[in-house]
Amino acid sequence: MKPLYLLGVLPFLGFFVGIIFANRVEPYVLGMPFILFWVVLWVVLTAVVMGAIYALDPTNKGDER
């Protein structure tokens, strides 16, 4: 288990713990109720987190492509 992989916990925290606090309409962000903004934000952040893991994970170096 590489320490890098702990980053993979972040999306779960964002959706499962975050939603407890994000279950509200105000404030609106980008025209969206806060809860929708929060969910969309975490979809994007998940891609960022997984992109970072992918880029830094030695497993993905060299073997394929």
């Binding site: 999306p11 109720p33 929708l36 979809v43 987190v49």
Partner: peptide, 20 residues
């Protein structure tokens, strides 16, 4: 209304799990 937002969440987390 709001409960529909769950649909955005589960696919995202499924892909995270799929990495490993």
């Amino acid at each position: 209304g709001g409960p529909a937002f769950y649909i955005l969440g589960y696919g995202t987390l499924a892909y995270v799990t799929s990495y490993w």
